[in-house]
Design a protein around this nucleic acid. Structure first.
Lengths: 300, 300
DNA sequence: CTGAAAGCGCTAACAC
DNA sequence: GTGTTAGCGCTTTCAG
């Protein structure tokens, strides 16, 4: 009889099933609001999400996308209370009070969640990060090895742990090379192409004055924006100054001259984060920091 | 009392609510399987999905991502039978028997769905498409206006309606310019950078022989692959031959020389598709074909 | 208009 | 094992 019903095209109602089991069968992915940017069109999010998708599929979970809105509060716990998700992955989390409070609430109530590419060291949240300190160290070391001595750093906002990590790597590399740290050589953008482009006006001047001979940018988008901006002053990457980006995005390969960069396993980071939450034979629940890799191309 | 409960932090259980209402509250987005490609990292999908996300949010729906698997059958109707979704958007649908059958089933059973950037003209499915015939016509016309006379066409696979549309536009533009159609100038790639790169070996020869003086590529990725491939033969876009791509992706702006291309409102297409399905004051349920726009840059 | 009760389609516990 | 039944937390209907 059951057999017959099934052969007649019966499929169980997942909604009823999930209700009875009190499991939504969904992993939520919380996406930050980034003004005026189509989020998926950034290499960073696109890759992480692809990795999460792969893992969710493998674990028979559905993937629910949660778009944060600019004004609305970060009530992540509500996702669990309403049973919309069984677990969630927070992308683009920032080290600001409201975010910390929202995550602390999840932790207190015992809801499973994982952060990707962002650490909150004091609180022991489940995290999958990449080793940006060492990636930055290697990048700067590579510039030093190329004979550059006045190396500027175009960093991202401090609310991301990766910015702190990169600054640490930059400083350590300079120290190891015996190059004094010069405050006027560190700039802060917001990871957009535009912010790189805009940094060009100051950096162009410094390159002309020989106060800067190379730049380490915290992501490829800013590096490319900077490259374009400096080109308008007749200053060429790989010729007039060394330049290294970060992320090994598709753009870094397409741009000319080809951008040296640091490859980050974003896809794998997303996959691992989801696996930690969903896999039954849960891989060790310890936090992990994946290695990154220097990619030498034409700008250094 | 109800008031009190709510102020005490009560939130209704969405799972129970949806079960009782027999509405999942989800829009499904069906993503094609593209081997070895991290799907979101393609401008095309990334933009469409961002648009869908925007609309879903506005209509208070959750967005469920459905990753097709390479081998598994396209049982789209099952998504509705199991109540996982209330409506769905099919991306990257192909004109092959299995796809047509799966869509026909949805139609027969009256499940709401919408196609984006793909038409099945014979069946009257709800569709949001762009005017690729006219986009291609304009692109080729622009090459003609630039003095090019032996214009090759690197098209995508025939399973996509856009490929047929583009071929029609290419042919009409040549006809209007009084240029005879030459079969040996039309090539077929698969929209990947690699397939553009590989086409370079044949096209390089034809450019040397003066049998081809310009190329219209059906997307930017192939155009850029071709550009890189031809460069290895010492043949430069914008100098030794005209080149125009399609999509106006970020890459087209970053590459040098900057790629002329055709801008397609993918984000808007995604948004409209979702709106048609979800909006209560449903905009006219007619199919729509959005306009595209020629973008002149350095390669033409 | 307020309040009680049936029922959504399953799962899980329990009895046979 | 197989069969029965209560119950998941809401919505909706129907009675008061």
């Amino acid at each position: 009889m059951l057999e017959a019903a099934k052969e007649l095209g019966y499929v169980p109602n997942a909604l009823a099933q999930r209700f009875a089991r009190r499991k939504s069968g969904n992993v939520g992915v919380i996406l930050p609001f980034v003004p005026k940017v189509h989020l998926f069109s950034t290499y960073y999010f696109a890759e992480i999400l692809s990795g999460i998708g792969e893992a969710a599929k493998a674990c028979n979970y559905d993937l629910l996308l949660i778009f944060r809105e600019p004004d609305s509060p970060r009530d992540y716990a509500k996702l669990f209370r309403t049973q919309k998700v069984d677990a969630c992955i927070v992308l683009g989390a920032q080290n600001v009070a409201e975010e910390r409070a929202a995550l602390a609430e999840l932790q207190e109530e015992g809801y499973p969640f994982c952060l990707v590419n962002q650490r909150f060291d004091e609180d022991g949240y489940l995290t999958v990060d990449a080793d940006h300190e060492s990636g930055s160290y290697t990048a700067v070391q590579h510039l030093v090895a190329g004979g550059f001595k006045r190396i500027a750093f175009l960093n991202g906002p401090g609310v991301f742990s990766s910015s702190g990590d990169r600054l640490a790597g930059y400083e350590r590399a300079l120290a190891d090379a015996g190059i004094p740290l010069a405050e006027e050589r560190v700039f802060t953008g917001n990871y957009s192409r535009k912010s790189g482009y805009e940094a060009a006006v100051q950096i162009a001047e410094s390159i002309r004055n020989k106060e800067i001979d190379a730049v380490f940018a915290a992501n490829d988008r800013m590096a490319i924006g900077l490259m374009d901006g400096l080109r308008e002053y007749g200053i060429e990457a790989g010729k007039d100054y060394g330049l290294i980006g970060y992320d090994d995005s598709d753009s870094s390969r397409i741009v000319s001259p080809k951008l040296s960069t640091v490859s980050v396993p974003f896809y794998e980071m997303g996959r691992r984060a989801a696996m930690k939450l969903l896999a039954s034979e849960s891989e060790e629940m310890e936090n992990m920091i994946l290695p990154v890799q220097l990619i030498k191309r034409e700008t250094t």
